[in-house]
Design a protein around this nucleic acid. Sequence first.
DNA 1: GTATGTA
DNA 2: TACATACAACGCTGC
DNA 3: GCAGCG
Length: 293
Amino acid sequence: MTIVEVEGRILRLTNLDKPMWPELNLTKGELLHYFAQMASVVLPHWQDRPMTVVRYPHGVEGPFFYQKNCPSGSPEWIHTFSTGGTNYVLVNDESTLIWMVNQGVIEFHPAEFSAGRPERASYAVIDLDPTHPFGFEAAVEVALQCREILLELGLRGYPKTSGATGVHIYIPLEPQYTFDVTLALAKAVGVMLAKAAPGLVTLERLVKRRQGVYVDYLQNASSRTLVGVYSPRPTPSASVSTPVTWEELTRVHPDEFTVRTLPQRVNAVGDLFAPVLTDRQSLDHLASLLGRS
DNA sequence: GTATGTA
DNA sequence: TACATACAACGCTGC
DNA sequence: GCAGCG
Ligand SMILES: [Mn+2]
Ligand SMILES: [Mn+2]
């Protein structure tokens, strides 16, 4: 056991040599180091967002479980937010982040709203999920189409890899729109994509009938979460959900962005998702499109 | 990974 | 003391 | 009504 001090708080870190990705010999200690390096970039994106996490106490090859409620026995300085009978952790500082990673958390899924305004979405999201044998390249093709459609609608979107084979496009918004509005927007974009690229894009909800890149517009709901930006994934490569520019989207592969490579990249290119925090857009000019659906 | 319940 | 168990569910959709 | 979905 190792005692560290983070932001003046004493943390007991356990099993630092435990392999979280045994195949890569990537330990919990190294994962903690990743988050220590990334904290200043990650925390603004997760601030005040009720957090769902996925824990792998024995590494990615072992069993996992989702966690929404702040567990009993957590430090008293952990901030929480209660809604609908669930007491969520707010990952608002580095000490909370480090404490959670020591608990075996690998995936962080922040809510799409802020605790301060739980009825209003911070962004709409276009979640592109390719089915087998379609892959990341197909998702990218749809993402680029999506960029054009959004621009025609007068909107700017910001892409990131999901860390698996998909792409997430965030459309940051003025915090005044409810989730029925963001759902209507994503659905309208999905319909336009399906029209522009039939055979490649699908809105089929039944997995066994689905073929192509699924536009998962139903992710736009207050009860839904998406893997957060800069969150690791329990993949063989220890990939990370990573913001990319539209220009590089066509020449990257999600497995090149990992727990081991991301700190260097962020030092080089900065936080490409920073605009998601500042470029808050209006949907008022789309009232007729989003009116009723 | 840790708290809690039960034998 | 030892061992088992919990740790998320919500709301919509298509049949 | 209920299974399927993420
Ligand atoms: Mn996805
Ligand atoms: Mn999805």
